[in-house]
Every structure is written in C-alpha cells, then in structure tokens.
Simulated scan of single mutants.
Amino acid sequence: MNSYFEKNKYKLLDKLLPLMPESKSYTTNIDGLLIVKRDAPFQSEVCLQQPLLIFSVQGEKRYSAGSEIIDYKQGQIVFQGTPMPCSSYVLKASKEIPYIAMVFAVNMQLMTEVIYSLDNVDISSMTHAYSSLGKIEAGNDIIDSFIRLADLLNKSYNDIKVLSPLMLKEMYYFLLKTELREKLISFAITSSQNNKILKIINYLKENYNNHYSINDLAEMVNMSPATFHRHFKMVTTLSPIQYQKSLRLLEASRIIKYENATVSEAAFKVGYESISQFTREYKRMFSVTPKNKQ
C-alpha cells in the first residue's frame, strides 16, 4: 500500500464520514460522484453498471463485471470503461471500521478534453482493443486530487458548480499518467477499436430484444466477424451473445419487479421464445428463479 495514502487516509475520512451518517450510498453535488458507506459485509444485486471509477478509502470489496472478478482494498482504484453487467460484495467492513469509497461516473467529455489538450497522445496507435477493466494503486497526485474533491463537498453550491469540472479534469489528467492511460484513451477516442465496440454495446442496449448475427454486428463497425468477436470479448469479457443475453435478463428482472409482469410476459417481452430456457438462464445469472422476484 502507498505510504502516502496511509498518511493521508484520515484526511479523506474526516471530510467524508460527517456526510454519511448511515450505511448506504449518497449522491453529492459534484456531478457523477457517489460516496458509499457500508458498516457490514454487503452483497449488491446484479445490474447494468455504467462506466465508472472507484476509489476505495477504507475496507475491501469484490467487484464482478462480466466474467471477471476484481478484489480491491483501500488505496486502490478500479476503472470500468464500458457498461457491463456487474455485482459487488463488501468483504471487509464493520461499524467501527466501515467500508468507504468514492465512486465516479466516467465523464467522457471532460476526459476527452484533457486528452486532446495533451501534446504527446498518439491517437493512431489505438489500433487494438483493451480490456474495459483495470486496477491500480492510487499515486500521490491522484490521492491529493481525491482529497481536494472530498474537501469541495463541504463547500458552497457555487464553489462546487465552478470548481468541480476543473478538479475532475485534474483527476483525469493524473490518471492519464498511470498505467490506465491506454484504456482511458481507447474509450474516449471515437476512432479506436474500443469505441467501436462501445457503439455496438449502446446499440444492443436499445435493441436487446431483437435477434442479430455476429456478421450483422460486425458489419456495423466495419470489422470482420472474427475480429469483431475477439475485440468484443476483450473489451467486455463476454461474447456478443452473452452480453445481449445479460441485457435481456436484466430488463426481465426489472419488469418482473417493478411492472408486476408474469414470468412468461417478461420472457417474451425481452425476446425469449422458451420459458424453460429463460428460467434456467435467469437462475444462473441471479441465483434465484424469476418467480422469487415477483
């Protein structure tokens, strides 16, 4: 663990803990920033998680995204560059030493502005796909950036409105000086292979209940089917078919829970033709049958 983090951890806790009296997630006045407190081990439900950056201030957590599992602890940063089916489990937390984290929705616009302001970015090198997921130890500059953002949470609304975009750009700048650099650039630059895969992901999110072949999807981004399949799995850890299946099951879970749909109604609405197949795959993903969600 970074000794600089050890020295400054309590600065962060002193600024964050008064804002979190209960064990839950809190939205903040900094756009895209959640602060999270858990005072006991906690399992989240599977959801479609948008691109994010997690900084663990205290405690340990297991993050499952696609088919990959990442364990991380205090002083570490986890990056996820594409929307992915995810769940998480707080491994180490108590009332005396709760799990504390700062969770940032990735602001592609701010990050892209930082990238294009640099004079040493070789965009032409973004010719292969990078995994969506990464984990690093937070360096000194990034820790200072997080401390300034935590301090800003205690300032006035006008201070936050004016200063938070500048501080977030500072955070992205320091992240671009780490081993996450290529991943960050690959998702921000529109001509990159990762961005082409992101285009298909966004298309599938809007059209999850339709049927597509690998050839259809590959043609949309001018790739061969083999290259497209390889790049898609590199970025998301899932095949295109597995990814679309996850989208369908997540939407089915939502409409069963919130729209009072029957199991068969939900299955047919999201594109399944077999109730038994739907039930089997639903249980595999959520560890319960769809009837238990009603």
Rank of each mutant, 00 (worst) to 15 (best):
I200F: 01
Y89T: 07
Y173N: 05
I255V: 15
R62E: 08
K199T: 14
N194W: 05
P18L: 15
I70D: 03
S87T: 11
N29A: 13
I142K: 10
S224V: 04
T236F: 12
L153N: 04
K92R: 15
I69P: 06
A101H: 00
G271N: 10
I142C: 11
F232H: 09
L33E: 00
R284N: 13
E96G: 02
S131Y: 00
S156D: 07
K291Y: 08
V162S: 05
P240A: 02
D144Y: 14
S124F: 07
K183R: 15
A188N: 15
I241F: 13
K92W: 07
K37G: 01
Y212T: 09
A188M: 12
Y99H: 08
R254H: 07
T227W: 01
F55N: 09
K15Y: 03
A267K: 00
Q294T: 09
V106K: 09
M108E: 11
Y10A: 01
M108N: 00
L249Q: 06
Y99E: 09
F174R: 00
R148M: 13
K257Q: 11
I70E: 10
F278Q: 14
E113G: 07
L250D: 03
L249E: 05
E265K: 14
Y173A: 01
G59Y: 08
A150K: 13
L166S: 10
F232A: 12
Y282V: 09
M111I: 02
D14V: 14
S64Y: 00
K7H: 03
A93G: 04
S125N: 13
